[in-house]
Design a protein around this nucleic acid. Structure first.
Lengths: 191, 191, 191, 191
DNA sequence: CATGAATGAGGTTTCATTCAT
DNA sequence: GATGAATGAAACCTCATTCAT
């Protein structure tokens, strides 16, 4: 029934009607309400699904990392993997959620802050100042989100998104004065 | 009558009602429609106001720049000035517009792309590869937008936003291998 | 200022806005209300203008008639003259008034009944039964109104309307068993 | 749900509110929109209902007619039957539709023209000139519509309408020089 | 006399949600 | 569990009318 994400992805939250969702899912209106308490709840479930996926990947990645720099690198690529898994879902959550609803917005920011906080913590452990770390965390999340937004709109391949992330990684690593450890390549090898 | 931005800023586009706007403006419903063709038109006017402001600042700044690097630096700070002039307006356009309406979204991306394009052009002139320039442009816009989003939510001072921009400037300049010329300081002195 | 009839004629009563009327009259909204108490009042004034014209013509025509049959014939042609004088006004009153407003409708019927009553009275004097006279009166008014409606829509010439009236006159006169006295020709000659 | 015709009949198109209609139908506002796309659509459905009824009766009547004169006579009485079936509906369509809306008006004229055309065709076949036939068709439709309008306003019995039609038939048949075949009587006998 | 910005009641329409079947 | 007809609150927008200038 999560093919509601198709409708949200195409029309956005407010333009999407329950009717369109259930038609897309080939079921009746009432059936929708067996699985979701409300339209809002359905959207939140989609948000949670994406963020759950990503957070899980991040946490797994970090468990296997031995240095702060490795944690940073692996977290970074965990996000890429999570976002590029399902373009539609990513589009819904990253692009359609923002101005739709106070609750979505709040949750969206909470998760972006959480992602940023991982980076901030790692940067601190890598020796950067509190200010540099804090700003760097948000800047990095913003940069990633923007290229994902561009990628989602333009229907580029996963490969192109990965290249963009590599360049962002390069910029930030150099900017932060870190030696780049290319965890991404190792991830790819492992696959 | 643009104190409609107050209501949009507080409630977002869809939750904002014409009634709330006119009550906030101490006028009648019909009066609103003397100045705006529709609710959508009103919101677009706010978007155009902010973007007009910023674009004007950028273009002015670029006219006085002599090197690509200077253009890049001055454009960067023009955006800061434009965004920090009016927190409420910035919040409306950057945060509330995204998922509200297909038209807003499209216009929002168009402007973000336009901003990114300035950076891309300058980076190309500075000798970076097409790919690096393109990705760098979007990444930079994303980083700036993110810290503005954080700033807007947290009611920090303009000074704190400026510091964040300085750090972002530093990261990207180093990441791009450019020598930083600190146009911002000169701008500030000039004021 | 009665060029309000232009707007009513083009758009009908409800679709016509005061704004359109005053723009067409090159004056301000307030000025409209110096001459008419309300939109309804303005429309009623147009109705009264047309019916006043016609009624006056009828009464004049009847004063010069010596026999019931002559009264009938002359009344008949007075209506034609009145209606064909100003196509636009005729269109407004005959076509646009009907379903627009209870008051218009009531007045419209009152006048049609008044016209019919002239015919009824004359037919009675010509010896027809009460029933025949009553039905004949209404039928005749209806027939005339219909061809006027067709004429108004099709922008035919006055001559064509006159021909249609002649044929209607012929049908009814024969149907009523009256010898036709061709008062119309005499009217035309007099002009 | 076509008891919306009750409200249209009482108040006319513009004065009739959806609220009044649904209150009269003892249902909710939304329910109205389950069955009609809009207020206009609802009114058009009523128009089509009446005209569909009448047209069907006419076509049936004409199929069983053997001579042009018989077709003419039978068509004539088919209209009477159709109009007198439901006073309210007739009142809505014939009286309330005219000036209410450009679309209604256009459709109203189209149907009146269609009715007139039947008569015109038959008259041609009966040997009348093109001009006589054309004018006669419209005049006849107008005469019928007028007496129906009077009848609707005065709450007379069906019998009185039928008598009026008989007299109109008589006038036009004599006026056209046709021998009257009294198809109506046969219809009535057959019932 | 003339103006036209301001008014605000009231209309149509949408759509998330419910609940009897 | 599944259905979908019914609900009705609430939103946007129009436009005849007023009145201070």
């Amino acid at each position: 029934m999560q093919a509601a994400q198709r409708v949200f992805s195409q029309h956005g939250y407010h333009q999407a009607t329950i009717r369109a969702i259930v038609e897309s899912a080939n079921c009746a209106t009432g059936t929708f309400y067996l699985y979701f308490a409300s339209k809002e709840d359905c959207f939140l479930a989609l948000m949670d699904k994406l963020y759950g996926n990503i957070m899980e990947k991040i946490l797994t990645a970090r468990r296997h990392a031995e240095s702060p720099a490795e944690k940073l690198g692996r977290s970074f690529w965990a996000v890429v993997e999570g976002l590029s898994r399902d373009t539609e879902l990513t589009s819904v959550v990253l692009v359609r959620a923002a101005g739709a609803n106070a609750l979505f917005e709040e949750r969206l920011w909470r998760v972006r802050d959480a992602f940023a906080q991982f980076i901030v913590d790692d940067l601190r452990e890598c020796g950067l100042s509190a200010n540099q770390a804090r700003i760097g965390g948000h800047a990095c999340v913003g940069a990633l989100a923007e290229v994902v937004g561009v990628w989602v709109r333009s229907d580029q391949s996963d490969q192109e998104l990965a290249e963009a992330f590599e360049e962002i990684e390069r910029i930030f690593w150099v900017g932060w004065g870190l030696t780049q450890l290319r965890y991404r390549n190792q991830d790819q090898d492992g696959k």
